[in-house]
């Protein structure tokens, strides 16, 4: 296991060139995942969570997307500079992804066996030719790992014959098959009912802990990251605004955006909900200067519309990109 970070995104910018101009979506994203770590990435719709991960896997449509700046290191190698063959190995053996909607992620005209078989061939066997029998055996093992009963029959089924929860289990089976080092789970339970979401999250946690895989869990639900992640990034309008260990973040949220989010979440303890955050996410064609949150921030100061805040370290395991904490913390 390498000593440095497994995935290290440095000052990543992603722009989309569209008819009306340039959408400046990612605005200097910094993001790190260490080996064996479970990292949460929280943010509301349209904040750039999925764009970031698509950039990592290099599946952004280019054009219209363009990456004007930044580096994405996976085990010390810059993904953005990789050739097709090396990139293929990263996708096949290094990083895998679980998508939000398992119905869209699975191909409706192939059986589970055919789809899982392809994954087994490319990721487990590294593209070597292995016998059908062996592919079948490994696929059965993969389905058993995600606690799906009657694996033999399932392999002959088409996705529509499975329930939503079972489909997501199949997707997870594909993602964890072999010895992947990093799994990106993009809202894995959002399209499912709470009781099924709970099962899926527990399954995911069990598998990554058993295999010591790193996970990036993308979600807009704060409660979900609290259940799984060791460390959490909060993202707003194309930039990370706060990062801390899960315990620290939930007991001491600091960024005004994080605070607003926490207050807006309905609590089981009752007592009503705070009024949320005024305004809405900015237009990426013409985003506000300085800190992108300042037009919605109730503690905005003069400097906020002028300069972009850096990450300020408030404690060993807590950094905030907000000028409110410039004095207290020392600049990174």
């Amino acid at each position: 296991m390498s000593v440095g970070p497994l995935l290290d995104i440095k000052d990543l910018y992603v722009h989309f060139h569209v008819f009306g101009g340039t959408l400046k979506v990612l605005d200097g994203v910094n993001f790190t995942v260490y080996s064996g770590e479970k990292v949460g990435l929280v943010g509301e719709t349209g904040c750039g969570k999925t764009t970031t991960m698509k950039a990592v896997l290099r599946v952004l449509p280019m054009p219209p997307a363009r990456i004007p700046g930044g580096e994405i290191y996976f085990k010390g190698r810059d993904i953005l500079k990789m050739g097709a063959e090396e990139l293929g190995r990263v996708r096949g053996e290094g990083i895998s992804m679980v998508f939000q909607d398992p119905t869209a992620a699975l191909n409706p005209v192939f059986t589970i066996g055919q789809q899982l078989g392809a994954v087994v061939r490319y990721s487990l066997a590294g593209g070597k030719r292995i016998s059908r029998k062996e592919i079948h055996q490994r696929a059965v093992v993969a389905l058993k790992e995600v606690a799906l009963p009657d694996a033999e029959r399932l392999l002959k089924n088409y996705p529509f014959q499975l329930s939503g929860g079972m489909r997501q289990r199949v997707c997870i089976a594909m993602a964890v098959a072999g010895s992947r080092e990093l799994i990106v789970a993009d809202e894995p339970g959002t399209s499912l009912d709470v009781s099924i979401q709970d099962q899926i999250l527990r399954l995911l946690r069990r598998l990554v802990e058993e295999k010591n895989t790193s996970v990036i869990l993308i979600t807009h639900t704060l409660g979900v990251v609290r259940e799984i992640a060791d460390r959490v990034y909060v993202m707003y309008a194309g930039k990370m605004v706060e990062v801390a260990t899960t315990e620290e973040l939930f007991s001491r949220p600091l960024h005004p955006y994080t605070l607003g989010l926490m207050k807006a979440v309905p609590k089981l303890t009752g007592g009503g909900i705070a009024d949320g955050i005024p305004g809405r996410i900015p237009d990426y064609l013409d985003p506000p200067g300085g800190c992108r949150f300042h037009p919605r921030c109730d503690q905005a100061m003069g400097v906020c519309s002028q300069e972009k805040p850096w990450f300020y370290r408030v404690s060993d395991d807590h950094e905030v990109a907000c000028f409110l904490y410039r004095e207290g913390g020392k600049e990174k």
Binding site: H220, L261, I273, R280
Partner: peptide, 8 residues
């Protein structure tokens, strides 16, 4: 809707 809008 997102939570901050839901609250509103």
């Amino acid at each position: 809707l997102d939570v901050s809008i839901q609250a509103k």
